[in-house]
Write a protein that binds this DNA or RNA. Sequence first.
DNA 1: TGAACACTTTAGAATCATTCCAATTCTAAT
DNA 2: ATTAGAATTGGAATGATTCTAAAGTGTTCA
Lengths: 133, 133
Amino acid sequence: MALLGADVRLTPHRREVFEVLQGSTDHPTATDIFTRVKDRSPSISLATVYNCLEHLSSAGLIKQVHLERGQSRYCANLHEHVHFHCETCGKVTDAHPAAGFDPAKFWNLPAGTKITRTELAIHGTCASCATKG
Amino acid sequence: MALLGADVRLTPHRREVFEVLQGSTDHPTATDIFTRVKDRSPSISLATVYNCLEHLSSAGLIKQVHLERGQSRYCANLHEHVHFHCETCGKVTDAHPAAGFDPAKFWNLPAGTKITRTELAIHGTCASCATKG
DNA sequence: TGAACACTTTAGAATCATTCCAATTCTAAT
DNA sequence: ATTAGAATTGGAATGATTCTAAAGTGTTCA
């Protein structure tokens, strides 16, 4: 399977990791994914999960997300989107653009800079936590 | 010293950590800061540097930045800005807005969501690395 | 078919960043 | 000066991730 120039041989483990991530909307961490994949393939090791995530993300099939100190999270949503992180309950949700929009245009980057990707993280309180508080 | 609602007693160590960070434009990590502060105060410990950074950032005097897996970086630039991260040389530079811009307006967040801060990271190749490559 | 080779997977060890802890020192206000 | 609360320390502990060496799984093609 090829995408964005890089190849990944889609071994059973890699496929499972990918499928588990595609079936998750909560931006799981590597250990979350490990736990979920283990239900189907009890023999898989955490090292393999890391390895699979590494290969899948360098092939562009998934994305790594870094929102806070601690564990990386992963995301199989390849559409243009940003991440909303609730500082109260910790949940991370995707938000999609209201209109086609290139954030890079709004910032003065030095001439000659090449952009490969942008990551926008919005931190705050989600509607549900805001109501309770 | 008070700002944004929180207080910090500005002890000598905290002041030094803050000054070192203010004098740095390279978004140093905690150990980078530890090394630099050690030149002036050889007895300071890494735990104290972490402690100072924690207090300074919860008081709103500095910001933590999470761009990639691994160490957190810190930044004393409180003006509205985004971070450009060169994937080739690893340098992180600030970019300031071309025009007043509220990223939150462009994304469909659920009604009732409260935003406390946004962090935009732009990854790519800096002009200097792009020329060499 | 099967020898050779490359890639994948594994468990556990190692590393690295960060946090915790208990003891000590400092500061500010009685 | 005394005392309480906060700051600082070094080292231990934790947690996430990466490394390593060995074993497994194909795949190629003579």
